[in-house]
Design a protein around this nucleic acid. Structure first.
Lengths: 117, 117
DNA sequence: TCCATATATATCGCATACAGTATATTCTGT
DNA sequence: ACAGAATATACTGTATGCGATATATATGGA
């Protein structure tokens, strides 16, 4: 597959979307309610941002009953994956990204938890 | 120094700015007229985009007579540099980025040329 | 001092991104 | 068939990014 750099960077230029992506990078697969809870934004907001990530082909989704699970698109070119990894390294310990990783684990009643890495 | 990921990605989400940065990554130091000629946009357009890159602290500038030379900020955190390198790898051979590298060398009367790497 | 060159900034008009709210869709259990 | 839960989409108002054009600033030379 093929991703334009401007598409990638426009997508992750928004903090909410970057937080989603970095969470997915760590946790493999998460449903919308987990992301919504962790990030603390309104559900339609998260859903819309996920839709943008989906349209940019940065994430893929799969339905399982009521829940829709998102994950980082496994077919991403390696340079994109590397960019995401370097970003994760760059924001390690930085708010709000660092807190997200912790906040998710503290969430009660996660659908299929723990899926943590 | 410290750079917010959203600042970085908003900056390079625009093709013109990314082209500037990748050219600077290859050529160490370039003046505005070289970037203007290579990218083929209006001078105020290039200047404004360079100003944005400067405000984001992604590039530094230095005046030498009439010319103002830009370079990638040497104080960038390593993860940012890595992101730029991976991007360069990702767009290798891709228009318009690949052509830029060639177009610059074909430019006549470059101020202090060649500064090529 | 006047002019030309290189670069920067200001202004305007348009398109697009975003949050918030309301509503629609899809599935599960009864 | 119905109700409720999880998620998606539609709509609206506001703000911001962008290109185009005009103008300002800085430097060097006659």
């Amino acid at each position: 597959m093929n991703i334009l750099p401007t598409t990638l960077y426009a997508a992750i230029a928004h903090e909410t979307r970057l937080r989603c992506l970095l969470l997915l990078l760590e946790y493999e697969e998460l449903c919308v309610c987990e992301l919504t809870h962790t990030i603390g934004a309104a559900q339609p907001t998260i859903s819309r941002h996920l839709a943008l990530l989906r349209e940019a082909e940065l994430v893929s989704d799969r339905r399982e009953g009521l829940w829709i699970y998102y994950r980082v698109n496994p077919a991403l070119p390696s340079w994109v994956t590397q960019v995401l990894r370097e970003t994760a390294r760059g924001v390690a310990g930085l708010a709000p990204f660092a807190d997200d990783l912790i906040a998710l684990q503290a969430m009660p009643n996660r659908p299929g938890a723990p899926r943590c890495a």
